[in-house]
Design a binder for these strands. Sequence first.
DNA 1: GACTATACGGAATCTCAGTTCCGTTTGTCG
DNA 2: CGACAAACGGAACTGAGATTCCGTATAGTC
Lengths: 195, 195
Amino acid sequence: MTTTTIKGAAGEARVLRADARRNHTKVLLSARKLFAEQGLDAQIDEIARDAGVGVGTVYRHFPTKEDLLQALADERFIGLAEAAQAALEVEDPGQGFVEFMTYSARVMTEDRALSEAMDQLPGLCRMAAERVEMLRLTGEVLARAQASGDIREDIVPEDIPALICGLGRAVRSEVERPTMSWQRYLEIMLAGMRA
Amino acid sequence: MTTTTIKGAAGEARVLRADARRNHTKVLLSARKLFAEQGLDAQIDEIARDAGVGVGTVYRHFPTKEDLLQALADERFIGLAEAAQAALEVEDPGQGFVEFMTYSARVMTEDRALSEAMDQLPGLCRMAAERVEMLRLTGEVLARAQASGDIREDIVPEDIPALICGLGRAVRSEVERPTMSWQRYLEIMLAGMRA
DNA sequence: GACTATACGGAATCTCAGTTCCGTTTGTCG
DNA sequence: CGACAAACGGAACTGAGATTCCGTATAGTC
């Protein structure tokens, strides 16, 4: 927990047996589903049951609950990085920015564990983010939108993940009634960021 | 957890012994501090230690961790209700709204447990909110600001707690660097809500 | 000052998840 | 078709933290 796990540093190029590969996928699939639905405290036992394997099998593939979460976070951040990359291809910088924010907001609101991990397991997220150079990519998307005069100059790259996190929570907040949709919240947030 | 606790419905007018009254206060004080600092998973044992009493004493005053949290939430919502009341007294409706939002944002960011409870213990918060008619008050503060043309017409009262919750989280998010201050986030959010 | 209902303290208990272990099953290879 | 390493399943083990219990201490009262 404290010291960032060392993770099989060397090449784990071990060729898995066919059933092992199959189970690995099944576990990841169920985990993705259950964590997204229930958040970080989805239970390993339930994931195993859902995947149709024993707990032991889950643990052989992912020695720790946190390792499993790390794998899932990595997937998510790869998606985010691709979205940022795509945003940079869009001709209109402002629109590219909006598209990136929209993708991020959707992912964040659809995956409860992701938004919880962002403030309960910062180390894990930071690691996943660094692996895809998320901050740099985010910065580029933002800078382009600022250069074109679409977004306020005082916003910094680090604000983006924070704002997206906030959005994730605001939307989930069920303290009062039907609650706002993520689109509406995003719209308000973007309005506040426009130059 | 599921069914809203019944709570001593009748008058608990029992006169407490002097030491009991004293301890009740000490526990509440320590709990407020530790929950604010550490969030919902501050431990009862530690609260007891900090208050200088035994665990048993904590439990006599608050049969459950949740009961203790309820008491603290009630305090917080009383403060929020007073802030809303005060906002209604301010001559300029827009300014009243801003002041109310500012107070809410500050409380939310300074009390980690409060912001966590908003999405992990919705029942408890809803109860605290209803006791002070929070939604009605919030609605009045908002309506006044909308009538005067300061705030967008499409914002509804239910959005306010959601937005404030989001703010609480955005500010705590330490995934990247120094993170934004709550004032800056609030400013962006208010900018997005202006008519 | 003695009496007793209230409170107190904190060791012991309970519960719930994460994790480990080991006997059994199954792919893979010759 | 064996042989055997690789994987599997799931009961049992652990640790953490909430909650209970009960013998002891004390405020309030006569």
